[in-house]
Design a binder for these strands. Sequence first.
DNA 1: TATGAATGAGTTTTCATTCAT
DNA 2: CATGAATGAAAACTCATTCAT
Lengths: 232, 232, 232, 232
Amino acid sequence: MGAVKTKRMPRAVREQQMLDAAVRTFGQRGYMAASMDEIAELAGVSKPLVYLYLNSKEDLFTACIRREAKALTEAVRAGARPGLPADRQLWSGLAAFFTHTARHPDGWAVLHLQARTHGEVFAAEVAAMRTEIVAFVTQLILEAAREAHRDPDLPEREVSGLAEALVGAAEALADWANATPGVTARQSAATLMNFAWAGLGNLMEGRHWTPPDDEAGVGAGEAQTGRTSPVR
Amino acid sequence: MGAVKTKRMPRAVREQQMLDAAVRTFGQRGYMAASMDEIAELAGVSKPLVYLYLNSKEDLFTACIRREAKALTEAVRAGARPGLPADRQLWSGLAAFFTHTARHPDGWAVLHLQARTHGEVFAAEVAAMRTEIVAFVTQLILEAAREAHRDPDLPEREVSGLAEALVGAAEALADWANATPGVTARQSAATLMNFAWAGLGNLMEGRHWTPPDDEAGVGAGEAQTGRTSPVR
Amino acid sequence: MGAVKTKRMPRAVREQQMLDAAVRTFGQRGYMAASMDEIAELAGVSKPLVYLYLNSKEDLFTACIRREAKALTEAVRAGARPGLPADRQLWSGLAAFFTHTARHPDGWAVLHLQARTHGEVFAAEVAAMRTEIVAFVTQLILEAAREAHRDPDLPEREVSGLAEALVGAAEALADWANATPGVTARQSAATLMNFAWAGLGNLMEGRHWTPPDDEAGVGAGEAQTGRTSPVR
Amino acid sequence: MGAVKTKRMPRAVREQQMLDAAVRTFGQRGYMAASMDEIAELAGVSKPLVYLYLNSKEDLFTACIRREAKALTEAVRAGARPGLPADRQLWSGLAAFFTHTARHPDGWAVLHLQARTHGEVFAAEVAAMRTEIVAFVTQLILEAAREAHRDPDLPEREVSGLAEALVGAAEALADWANATPGVTARQSAATLMNFAWAGLGNLMEGRHWTPPDDEAGVGAGEAQTGRTSPVR
DNA sequence: TATGAATGAGTTTTCATTCAT
DNA sequence: CATGAATGAAAACTCATTCAT
């Protein structure tokens, strides 16, 4: 099943077939539940060949993560054409992001769900990609501020937090959209722009939402639902 | 190792110790990589006892999810005291959320990372909790609109999307805060309020961000980074 | 479940309850599949008490075998009243046998199925009972020959073989009757008498069925259905 | 231990070796007491290979039953050449049966002892074989009646009972012969023919052994050896 | 290049059995 | 007399990984 069993293909092609099979299997079954047997069969190859080309399950998974991460970042970068005003860039970058995650659900699952849940090594791999995207978005925010002729006296960390939140919201929306039939990429992008843009605008103009000083007991009072040991 | 090896405790106590050990192990190693052996040892008990009380790895995991989900929702609800204006409720709910996730990183990992990646059954369990929280936030948004004497003609789905995005952003920020030393719960909450509140305000007043009509090629152009099979 | 949970019974009674539960469980589940937990619960006692009274699973099983074997032999002996002519004794002994096995299917299963399949020790225990019954039947055959004023020049071993065959047939019929609704003990007994009596009569009168001398290849030619090693 | 450890054999061969080891182990230890570890070691293979080829303990056991059942039926059918008069057929079939069970004691134990005591599924498997053999014997009985020009007005169920008894006797004799050194297959066969043939002859001629009408108390009087609960 | 044959090491799970009260 | 609490030991099964061809 899967790819038609043709003999003697060039290595590069075979490798892609294996990665296809692996992404699909990892995405659907999860990293640990996916067996090399299943992947090999889906790729239409024998198991030793998989090992010959990809070395080990870990390496195979890493290869999947890298390929999918690259595809996703490239899709986003390709979407957000420089030259446009910052808000337009953000919009089209988001649209490209949602389009891509919708078209490659298994790849998205690998990146967003699997890679982050199975060991530091893999998590670091996606973290790199995420960092890149967050940086990109941060860039856009600052650029937008510049375009609006506002001196961005937003503190460094705050801007990072904002970008982080924006990206996090995008990720959540991507999951939500993938699980909710009938939601288009454009709708998701619009929702997010609506949600975020005005807030950003306000911030750039120095209008912050101010937390009340006195928050007697915020975070205190912990409803102790039976936990025994202190916390960790 | 782990809990001090005290003999002959009443069942209820032992069960909590086991859950503590399990949450910690599942949170750190992941569901599949966590072995019952390790959990038992960390709990200071023999494996058969774990099975006697918690039945199976699946049941144990479910029990963890339930306990942590309950603790988290209760923390949030306890934080967001009704009676306050909606924005204050949102703020304090968020603060409680970030406080809780920071204090219980393993519990948070179980809920946010592990439960969602290891089978529909577990995913459903957290989905329920998430739905509850999203509903709560949706409530708050509508209430805020009412308080602002704005006719909330926001379409149903849009509000859902907003709440979804807000919660998603909160989740991402929680991860980020846990990974970035020195970020306090209040800071995270403030960032998110800043990010979201003005946007929400605009929306409530009917000022939408309008996507450009013509987006020739949005989502097209897929950077083909070597994928072989069509897409799936 | 099972016996009503009454406290503080004399030891003898409790022991019988345990044996009842054990026979039932062993008979239905099989020796190995029966768990001490299940037996204890069915007996309405705690597991340690079972161990206190019966020592171990092996001892418990042995106790079951002994009790059931005793009950069966006594039933048969009680059925075959001495004083009657030999054929009538055989008949009524058989009837008693079929009646008992029909009334105590679990006990019969313990003796005939379980005890013989789970280790030499248990097998020896039933073998003793079986030997006793076979001896009894042998007795009856010889007596019958005497009654018929036939000099029993039947060779020792042949008589043993006959008794063995008769008992074996009875056992098979007991199983068959237990599995076939509507077959009464008297029917089974009659079938067996019909089957055996005339043959015995012939033998006693010296009329043997003579095997053909030349049996070229009897038992040879073994259809070799794939067996690898010689035979054992 | 066991088969010589030769590496890299074709699958079919290894499978037979495994079945050999399994039959031996199951026959001697019993189904439940036999461990896959022991079987694998005896077969000179690692456990995973056993699972790879035979799937599970249940499947392995079923495969054993099937192989041994096939071998036994084929041996019997090959022994009882059609064309001979019915008594000769019966004789040579029996001889073949006793020869086979004597040569393959473990196979016989698997079929006669183990398969019938460890779950309906396995029992059904041998039941099928037994049914086949009983039918074969029934055939022979009717044929014999025809040959003797006797109108076989033997009632259906009675003939079944007879065949059942005959087969049961044969089974018991096989066990007995296996346990008693020095008993040959021909002796067993002769014993059984002597036991049965004249009786069958009588029956076919309508001479039944008639049970006494009045059997006051047959089956009653149950020697109550301590049973507590009613009976079941 | 490609694979059928094979395994070491580990997993979850179960059970007879025993303390301490 | 009776039991809730606890475990050592082993069983079935799986999987990533590697030879030998």
